[in-house]
Nucleic acid binder design. Structure first.
Lengths: 233, 233
DNA sequence: TATTATAAATTGGTTAACCAGATTGGTTTG
DNA sequence: CAAACCAATCTGGTTAACCAATTTATAATA
């Protein structure tokens, strides 16, 4: 067999191709939830790809909760039913790469919630962590250094304090992409340093006081320019 | 070397162990954004694990945007800076498995947004897809069959219509887990069929009319019992 | 016949050898 | 001295052979 090195995009295409193949296979064979898929070897042969690629793709579908593989036993269709599975696989195949606008829109949505939940649920330990993150942010800004990372870490500390592991996970997923785009589009203007510190401080105080309304308002103010940047340009 | 088969949990432990090792390595060697990590072979030898495990872990960290690997070149620290990287890695290591409550709380948050955005942005094509999903849901319910999947697919159709790929992706991530827990806890009572159809219909109409306020209100009504279930029990 | 014991085949997981593109250091050449 | 060239080396990606747990088929036994 000819060996070929693929670029990142070709790699994604290959994955999508295998996903579509698995979807069709499940449909044609009328596999129900809990049924076993053909073995990885069979699949790789049938699809004309390497077993490693099949394994990677299965891992991806496991991440989305569509398949489950058991060691020394087989790979199984998850308990979500053929209809949902079909729909989800099609959605996954149609997923576009996230654009900056959708990232910011999502971040604002998530954080207006995390800040309220954090105000309700934060423990003293959470407060300490947030305060530490806030301090290192202030230090960087006052030294006139770039503080994008410390900025985001403060927000992640809030996400942790909201005591919702799912929202927390989603914040983690979008944070690196946010950072990359921030630096790409130069969203953060350094001149606003003291103002940003004030805003962070206000958010922290509101969470400390467990004032959910104020926490949300302060976060809104903090996001004001980001929001403008997202929708005006 | 002794060969050992690991359970799912031991596997996760192994991954977390490797993540922690990579984190420490980056810290000790003071690697900056864009710097190259030691090769996979080196890492596997240094950490005392197989190269395959190292590759899996790197893939995971790539998913979170912390590392980037280039074919025939190496694996590189992403452009998010050491501080953010450290914080994110620690967060990833501390991530708990999502509990039902956090899933429902997140779903409500996301969907109250998707429904408003869908009302604003839906195309005619989106409407057709939503209507199709709605029809197959009605058919199932009227035949007194289980319609959890069709239910969720209608909601995913709304998510698609909201034209925000990031929110859409997050809906996809939580949907299978929601379905599993629904069936696990028997949240859906079949008796409520006609009522649920009415609610879905109302949501669809509001989106069709591009009435964002009504769309949100209808979704809130639809989630009323789910909300109660999430917070009372 | 039903049940248990046993061996063969199948499975996902693991490992190590191999591939071709990328990098690097030294050499030649203008 | 600088730039172009080339071969040795290093890299992530790929492949195929191997491992042990599991499942299935078969045989022995009550």
């Amino acid at each position: 067999m000819k060996l070929e090195i693929l670029t990142r995009n070709e790699h994604k295409e290959l994955h999508n191709n295998i996903i579509a193949n698995i979807r069709d296979l499940i449909n044609n064979k009328n596999l129900e939830p809990g049924d076993k898929l053909p073995s990885e070897r069979m699949l790789s042969e049938r699809f004309g790809v390497s077993r490693g690629n099949v394994r990677e793709t299965i891992q991806k579908l496991e991440f989305y909760g569509i398949l489950k593989s058991k060691p020394q036993s087989g790979t199984f269709v998850a308990d979500i039913g053929p209809v949902a599975m079909n729909g989800m696989m099609n959605d996954i195949l149609g997923l576009e790469d996230p654009d900056f606008k959708s990232l910011v829109e999502t971040r604002i949505l998530l954080e207006l919630k995390t800040v309220r939940l954090a105000a309700q649920r934060r423990t003293n330990d959470d407060l300490k962590k947030m305060e530490a993150a806030l301090e290192s942010y202030k230090e960087k800004v006052l030294n006139n250094e770039d503080a994008v990372q410390e900025d985001l870490l403060f927000h992640l500390a809030i996400a942790q304090a909201c005591r919702n592991s799912t929202i927390n996970r989603m914040m983690l997923i979008i944070t690196p992409e946010i950072i990359n785009n921030f630096e790409k589009y130069h969203v953060c203007d350094k001149n606003q340093g003291p103002k940003r510190i004030r805003e962070h401080q206000d958010i922290f105080e509101a969470i400390k006081e467990q004032n959910t309304q104020k926490a949300k308002e302060m976060m809104k103010i903090h996001f004001k320019e980001l929001y403008k940047y997202c929708y005006n340009i």
